[in-house]
Design a protein around this nucleic acid. Sequence first.
DNA 1: CGATGCTACCCAAACGATTGGCCCAAACGT
DNA 2: ACGTTTGGGCCAATCGTTTGGGTAGCATCG
Lengths: 356, 356
Amino acid sequence: MGTEGTRPVTLQSIADQLGLHVSTVSRVLNAKRGESGRAASPATVERIRRLADELGYQPNPHATSLRTRRSNLVGVLVPRLSDIVLATIYEGIEEAAAEQGLSTFVTNTGDAPEAQRARTRMVIGRRVDGMIFGDAHADSHFLDEVAGRGVPFVLVNRRAGKHPSVTCDDYLGGRLVAEHLLALGHDNVAVIAGEPYASTGQDRTNGFVDRYREAGIDVPGRRIVHSPFDAAGGHAAAERLLDDGARPSAIFAVNDFAAIGTIGALRDRGIRAGSDVAIVGFNDTPLAAELPLPLTTIRSPMHEMGRRGIQMLARLLAGEPVEPELLRPRLIVRASSDPALYAQLGLVTEAARPRE
Amino acid sequence: MGTEGTRPVTLQSIADQLGLHVSTVSRVLNAKRGESGRAASPATVERIRRLADELGYQPNPHATSLRTRRSNLVGVLVPRLSDIVLATIYEGIEEAAAEQGLSTFVTNTGDAPEAQRARTRMVIGRRVDGMIFGDAHADSHFLDEVAGRGVPFVLVNRRAGKHPSVTCDDYLGGRLVAEHLLALGHDNVAVIAGEPYASTGQDRTNGFVDRYREAGIDVPGRRIVHSPFDAAGGHAAAERLLDDGARPSAIFAVNDFAAIGTIGALRDRGIRAGSDVAIVGFNDTPLAAELPLPLTTIRSPMHEMGRRGIQMLARLLAGEPVEPELLRPRLIVRASSDPALYAQLGLVTEAARPRE
DNA sequence: CGATGCTACCCAAACGATTGGCCCAAACGT
DNA sequence: ACGTTTGGGCCAATCGTTTGGGTAGCATCG
């Protein structure tokens, strides 16, 4: 199907073959299946449609965008696509964008303000209709500038200021973790809090600390260390934590990868994660359940966040008003924090051995 | 900087303000810094340039593409972006594309032939200059069709037929793993071989099996099980493997995530990965080193693969001839297979405890 | 002094699609 | 019989750039 190598079929070429004017063809092909009555006679409509999909006609998006001043393109900025959290969110974005007739493209900023500016400029240069930021910095005024430029956008994963956003209820997530650890009797806890400028880390930490405070327990500042959202970052942060003062009985890492890095750091010091120190992560990435030490974590609706993000943007583009959305997190208890499950893990090991 | 909300600046608007013709402005702005002599007088050149970047002029890519019939756009297909291997490759692609003045966008196919067709059609509809496939199926003729359509493309990660590709030397990688396990005395081994249609899994498995055969050891067919390239897939495959026949002393999973899933499956059966069964993965993803049980694996140059892929495509677009590229893998030995390291892991645990 | 060659620009035709008008013929109303 | 609809299309401008050709004015040359 479709001619090969040669020039793509255009409205003009269809019109010529049918002895019609290009505008007629355009109207017919653009009419929704139902309301093609205005455009041409039923017979003509049929001829046009038949030839168009026989030739595999696809409108030239550059021509369309040029003429209509609408690209149906959305640019997405993320810190790193190789972070599975952002990759999953982007999958949601792309999936739902297609349903809305929008195209998307994504680019890394590494969370660096300079790169955010440069990439945003590049994205706008591509004449997008809107943007989605997955790398918002809570403290920066950059987004206000973008808003001033008149580019519609939505924030996902992280919120900032009053800009429209779709996020997980991170504060609640932090509280859920605190409740879980309180119930297990932990009164000496620490937090690996992520990057200081990310609302995710801030909110999760605040929820956690607030809930502990409500229980009459203070989590001192030096028990809260910041770190990049990856395994290496979690590893380094855990080392700083352990170098400084008595060992906590539980560590809440605001990100699964940071949690894995924490486990690595503990392992290197001969401390057994799960029994000596309880570990809780955040996000419930697909690995959490498969780890040698299954990880207690908060399940956040990453894919859904992406979907809602683009839907919100679509509403924005349609001129409708939007409200920030907060998605519900859920605690998933596994062996890394639960003594019973941990023991069971050990017991199974012993019990199963004779089976062979 | 730049006016806000209003219509973007065009060549026309610049020309008007300067009392020049749009074509003059176009030529000046398109000339490389050196050779602007032909276009206009030095004074005029200066005036144009100054005004252009004072107004923050950015050419309208739709107009440019429409006129030049070149979009400088590259479409990338991957099985899943939330697979860190593909995400990392794509990061390399995007990075190097920017250096070449190319833009890229990526889309998931889930490795499903139907989706591959549909997405390819969509990508071509966006009038890309070329494509990169990260999801090639070795057995399919689909790529031949695409080639017949005259769309230039390059394969990354997986190869297929004689199409230009940039891959890791997976066969060699498989041999390296075999050599490592042979040296450790394993003669009862199994392979979790990935998807049957992926050259990565095929080559890694073949290299492994061939090397074993050279050592006089046959790896029987039922010791080779296929699986998706993720943790859940590895888990399921490992279960099938364990359900059927005697336990191997070592398992080679052709992907780190499958290896992690394998560890999970072993754990569930009370078998200790690393001591009861040696485990080797592939790719050396950032987690491999941080796992509670550090994972022996093959480091593959994922980022570089992406970079080379786009560079090869650029050469193709320039009409230059290209040769398939094979990148060198490297064995990284960790505790999951090395008894000494494993013991050390355990020893550290015991030794360190008094330290507290 | 006419031919030639620069220099420094301008002209206009694309590229492919959209869209507000316009127009002709047949049908209709009275 | 004649004005009015209306069905069915056609016209042409337009979006912003690029690019193959001019061309006017001046200097140079033989």
